[in-house]
C-alpha cells in the first residue's frame, strides 16, 4: 500500500480524496458544543465525486488505523457549516469528518488514516448494472495530530 503525504490527492475510484490535516476540537463544525466527557477528533479533507451521479457513499472511504474503537463519524460540509449529504459529480468540496471520542481516550501523536478505494464494473454479476465494487486499501496517510487545539477535558 502506498504511503502518501498529506495534501496529495488519492484516487480511490468513486472518490478523489485529499487529506489535509487533523486536530482535536470542543465544537463540531456546525457550532454545537461536544457533550461533556467527550472530545471531537477532526479530519480536514477535500472530496470529489468521480462517479456519474450524486452520491453520499463516502463513509467507507476512510479508516482510522491507530484509534481504538472509533465510532461512526459525522461528515460536515465546510462551506455550509452543516451536515454533508450528497456530493455532486465534478464538484470538489472541503469536508470535515468528526469522531466523538471519550475525553479520556489516549490519542497517538500522528493519526494513521487508510483510504479505501473501489473499482468500477460496467456490469455486475447479479443485475448486469454498473456499480463500484471490491473495496481495498489504496493509500495510508500519516497526519500529525495537533493536541494544542483545545484538547482539554
Amino acid at each position: 500500500m502506498a504511503q502518501v503525504k498529506p495534501g496529495k490527492p488519492v484516487d480511490a475510484g468513486q472518490w478523489m480524496v485529499t487529506l489535509n490535516s487533523s486536530g482535536i476540537a470542543t465544537e463540531t463544525p456546525d457550532g454545537r458544543r461536544v457533550p461533556d466527557g467527550k472530545k471531537a477528533l477532526t479530519l480536514d479533507l477535500t472530496l470529489e465525486n468521480m462517479t456519474a451521479e450524486s452520491s453520499n457513499l463516502y463513509r467507507d472511504a476512510l479508516k482510522l488505523e491507530n484509534v481504538a474503537n472509533p465510532p461512526v463519524p459525522q461528515f460536515y460540509l465546510v462551506r455550509d457549516s452543516d451536515l454533508l449529504w450528497d456530493l455532486q459529480p465534478m464538484m470538489p468540496e472541503k469536508v470535515k469528518v468528526v469522531w466523538q471520542l471519550p475525553a479520556t481516550q489516549a490519542l497517538p501523536k500522528a493519526l494513521s488514516v487508510v483510504i479505501v478505494g473501489t473499482t468500477y464494473k460496467p456490469k455486475d454479476n447479479l443485475y448486469a448494472a454498473p456499480g463500484w465494487f471490491n473495496p481495498s486499501d489504496v493509500a495510508r496517510i500519516s497526519l500529525p495530530l495537533s493536541v494544542s487545539q483545545g484538547a482539554g477535558p
Partner: peptide
Amino acid sequence: AAIEGASGRLYRQSHR
C-alpha cells in the same frame, strides 16, 4: 428528480 447534464452525469436534487 435529477438533471442530466451535458456530460451525461446525473445531478440529483440538492439537500443543501
